[in-house]
Design a protein around this nucleic acid. Structure first.
Ligand SMILES: [Mn+2]
Ligand SMILES: [Mn+2]
Ligand SMILES: [Mn+2]
Ligand SMILES: [Mn+2]
Lengths: 156, 156
DNA sequence: ATGATTTTGTAGCCTGTGCTACATTTTAGG
DNA sequence: CCTAAAATGTAGCACAGGCTACAAAATCAT
């Protein structure tokens, strides 16, 4: 290992980031990925409740493109984590925590779409990509997005 | 359901996207998520090979922040999918397919970081967020990012 | 050279998130 | 009201990607 480090120090053409930093980056990305599913569910449920009235497992499943069995299991997880409630054959509802998460998630989703469009991404494409991107945008980045949009919408 | 749709049509305060479109969005995001891990591995392995010489399972594990057992299993998947090779105690190497994937992934990673910085995200934060965001940026969005950066770097 | 340390590999476990198939319950239509 | 259709729930499977614990191999240092 000593030999290898020396060789790297003398002949390395590429600089690597610090090991610990890099590990933290990947760990953060994995964590975001783990909550992505929950975020999409609460956002969708909140949309359904706001738009029509009911958020039924079958509707949720259809909109997410998964089987109803899968949706029901994920809804069970939402309940386990205190984000949703449901009564047999009565549809799904959000707890206050679920509702406030949904609000944050929706605001972030919109901001991401708007930023993508502002830098020139076609609307359709922006909406496609945002669905995945949103889960990895930190609050600091979000704030920067908001500043950018304000700057560039007033300067029409 | 007829009654529900009528109610929604008359009193709906929120517009929902088309069901099929929405399902496609979520399916695409899930697909991106599934390849994210492979992308991070090939990018990291390529970096290690370019910078020092070797890409050993333990190094890979440390940099990714996972146990070496986990890394070895993921490397097995890389091999199964034709992206990498390895001989016992000889480290990991990329196939031509793996190498070209790594090149695409690295270019995309850099472009995403640069764009985030260009819109005002602090560098540190940009590098953190990019690790997750990169896997969800389509080619079309990437092209838009490149155009945006060219426009805004020449106009200094 | 040999003993300690590091690296690698294996085995077995868990959780999350997909699926299909089947059972049950509710809802809707005639 | 009764039957057919739709919705819901359950069971059981598969696979990915985490982990720890243990075993074997290679490397390093004395
Ligand atoms: Mn999403
Ligand atoms: Mn969303
Ligand atoms: Mn990444
Ligand atoms: Mn990357």
């Amino acid at each position: 290992m000593t030999a290898k480090k020396l060789a790297a120090a003398t002949a390395a053409p590429v600089e690597m980031p610090d090991e610990a930093d890099q590990a933290l980056r990947f760990e953060k990305a994995r964590a975001a990925q783990a909550s992505a599913l929950l975020e999409d569910y609460v956002e969708l449920i909140d949309d359904l409740l706001a738009s029509g009235g009911e958020a039924r497992p079958t509707d949720i499943a259809r909109r997410l493109g998964v089987s109803h069995a899968t949706a029901i299991k994920s809804i069970a997880r939402l309940k386990r984590e205190g984000l949703a409630t449901s009564k047999l054959y009565r549809g799904v509802f959000l707890t206050p925590e679920g509702h406030s998460l949904a609000a944050r998630v929706r605001a972030r989703h919109r901001l991401v779409v708007d930023l993508l469009i502002a830098v020139g991404v076609p609307r359709q494409c922006a909406e496609l990509d945002a669905e995945g991107i949103e889960h990895h945008v930190s609050d600091a980045a979000l704030a920067a997005f908001a500043r950018f949009l304000k700057r560039h919408s007033t300067a029409s």
